[in-house]
């Protein structure tokens, strides 16, 4: 133990935060001249997608303007990511799992206008996805469609829709299925979803957690998940152990992107942030999107081999069936909403 080490320790305890801040300031000053850093706050399964998109955009942007752009992405549950932005995380852009979460940012923090979703094409969704099933190899329980999920003895894995954005899509897809089958019987849809959750033995808080419980802990016969996550599950845990079952009917998940106006104006990054969001709609980006298992807005611009991986499904939207997230969110997932009622004492799902 030398004095130097002691000094270092003391320094670490007392001066480190200040030191770090000053170093950071220096770095920021040095970079300000030649590099723009954008913060992208995104949801859980987009890690691989945005890594690829950011790199491609940075190359493109430097070639056309000579300016260096670095996009840092932060990932997590969609709801908690939105909360971080509301609480002050300086996100230049947000790319979340559902419009409801960006609505919440607009409502709670006023950092972007309420009509943010109409500012970019296709409800600000440059890519879409859907909800599919993952089953164990050979599909021992013979699961083909949504109504197989409510059969007795079938154990279904889906996260808690109160904490997981993906789980809300799962829930709404099931609801929309029964609504479609019964030609609009809301009570039947509710009974169907209740029956489905009666078959759910564990409510994990996020999509990745549920995937782990299903794939590694061996719980459940079927996992309801994002299509892109389902592909990743197979790639990660082995196509020899699991297979994807695509139901004939599902929901069109539209994960939107948006600029956070007050942040980009304060940081002077509006030009770059806008360019990045527009880039997502370009042929180059659409190709990357399809390659990462998301359904591109313009399939004709993507690699046909990638497009061939997406089966044809009849898809409905939250707007058509539920009147948009601003209605679906409070009705189904708000405090005391339909999902909470499913778990009321004495109700069917318990």
């Amino acid at each position: 133990m030398t004095t130097r080490r002691l000094l270092l320790r003391a320094g670490a305890a007392l001066g480190a935060p200040a030191l770090l801040a000053s170093v950071r300031a220096h770095v920021a000053n040095a970079q300000a001249a030649k590099e723009v850093v954008l913060t992208n706050v995104s949801y859980d399964p987009t890690r691989e997608l945005y890594r690829a998109l950011s790199e491609a955009f940075a190359r493109d942007w430097q070639a056309s303007t000579g300016e260096k752009v670095v996009i840092r992405s932060s990932h997590g549950g969609s709801g908690s990511q939105a909360r971080k932005v509301i609480d002050g995380l300086e996100a230049d852009i947000v790319t979340l799992a559902l419009a409801g979460d960006i609505d919440a940012i607009a409502r709670e923090s006023k950092r972007l206008p309420p009509d943010w979703q109409s500012r970019l094409p296709n409800n600000s969704s440059p890519y879409t996805s859907t909800i599919v099933f993952v089953v164990r190899k050979g599909n021992p329980k013979g699961i083909k469609d949504w109504n197989d999920l409510i059969k007795p003895g079938v154990s279904v894995m889906t996260p808690n829709p109160k904490t997981s954005g993906g789980a809300r899509w799962n829930y709404l897809a099931a609801w929309a299925y029964e609504l479609d089958r019964t030609k609009g019987d809301q009570a039947a849809a509710r009974a169907f979803v209740s029956a489905l959750y009666r078959n759910v033995p564990v409510l994990d808080s996020g999509a990745r957690g549920t995937t782990t419980t299903f794939a590694q802990r061996g719980l459940g016969d079927v996992l309801i998940n994002w299509e892109n996550e389902a592909f990743l599950t197979l790639a990660e845990f082995g196509a020899d152990k699991f297979e994807i079952v695509v139901p004939p009917f599902s929901i069109l998940a539209e994960p939107p992107v948006a600029l956070v106006d007050s942040v980009v104006d304060k940081r002077g990054t509006r030009k770059e942030a806008e360019a990045f969001l527009n880039y997502l709609y370009s042929p180059a980006a659409q190709k990357i999107i399809a390659h990462n298992y998301y359904r591109p807005l313009h399939p004709d611009q993507a690699d046909p081999a990638d497009i061939a991986r997406f089966p044809k499904i009849r898809l409905v939207t939250v707007g058509d069936v539920f009147g948009g997230w601003s209605k679906a969110q409070p009705t189904h997932f708000g405090d005391g909403g339909v999902f909470d009622q499913i778990y009321k004492p004495g109700s069917a799902a318990r």
């Binding site: 549950g77 808690n160 109160k162 904490t163 808080s205 405090d335």
Partner: peptide, 11 residues
Amino acid sequence: LLIVMRLEEFD
């Protein structure tokens, strides 16, 4: 967990 859920609802 209930607290976290409330936070997710911005409540």
